[in-house]
């Protein structure tokens, strides 16, 4: 089943006085349960592509369909709804709400979804245990290490049972050992819960973990291959 479908997507940014063409005629499709890495040098358009797939930003031309929903005619609040229920995000850094504890950060999404308190609490505990943060529920982000913060971010991204998780350079600010731990967790989630994962990265290790590697250079799709392992 197709999870993501991009057809001839174009996106141009205004940066100062110059127009930067971030994406040029990008078409690709990703099916449910994939574990995909989008790689490329910085400025190649990876983040833009992720933002577009997540509905954070709108295309100039072309079409994006996620889990059967075409973004073409969706309003801001419909997009917010889609992000809430279908998409999970993990960003590079500054990812968590600093005034909320680890548990509250995770719980927040379910709050937005309107789940009952009892269910929220059970799931928060379960998911934080899953990502290896037993006993750290009440720590604030400032009291957690970078790797721990990213694990909370992953927990938050998947706690709402999304169809797809978008992770923008999740390991960029982590050392390689911590990054590896994070990837293992994501991989586990991918396998256990059949959640589609899409990363952007220029980290060799992340690319090794991915089962499919999409390469972007200067806003164009340069390579797309599925690894056999």
């Amino acid at each position: 089943m197709r999870m993501v479908e991009c057809i001839k997507v174009n996106k141009t940014y205004q940066q100062g006085q110059v127009n930067v063409r971030a994406l040029k005629d990008v078409s690709l499709s990703i099916v449910t349960g994939e574990f995909v890495a989008i790689a490329g040098p910085s400025g190649s358009g990876k983040t833009t592509l992720l933002n577009l797939i997540g509905g954070l930003d709108s295309v100039d031309s072309g079409t994006i369909v996620v889990d059967g929903h075409s973004f073409d005619q969706m309003s801001q609040s419909q997009l917010a709804d889609l992000r809430l229920n279908k998409v999970g995000f993990v960003f590079q850094a500054y990812n968590l709400i600093p005034v909320l504890s680890a548990a509250e950060n995770v719980e927040f999404v379910m709050l937005l979804q309107g789940l009952p308190a009892k269910e929220r609490r059970q799931r928060v505990k379960a998911i934080l245990d899953d990502v290896g943060l037993e006993g750290k529920y009440d720590r604030r982000p400032a009291e957690l290490s970078g790797g721990q913060q990213q694990r909370v971010a992953v927990a938050r991204a998947i706690v709402s049972n999304p169809s797809i998780v978008l992770a923008d350079e999740p390991t960029a600010n982590l050392d390689s050992k911590t990054g590896k731990g994070l990837l293992q967790i994501m991989k586990k989630m991918n396998e256990e819960k059949k959640i589609t994962f899409i990363f952007s990265t220029h980290d060799k290790m992340v690319m090794d973990y991915a089962r499919r590697l999409i390469l972007i250079r200067d806003g164009r799709l340069a390579d797309d291959r599925v690894k056999s392992n």
Binding site: A80, F89, L96, V109
Partner: peptide, 16 residues
């Protein structure tokens, strides 16, 4: 601002 960006990205409505 960044924080609000994240909050909106994970689906918080601006009204909230």
């Amino acid at each position: 601002t960044r924080e609000f960006g994240v909050l909106m990205a994970i689906g918080t409505a601006p009204a909230r």
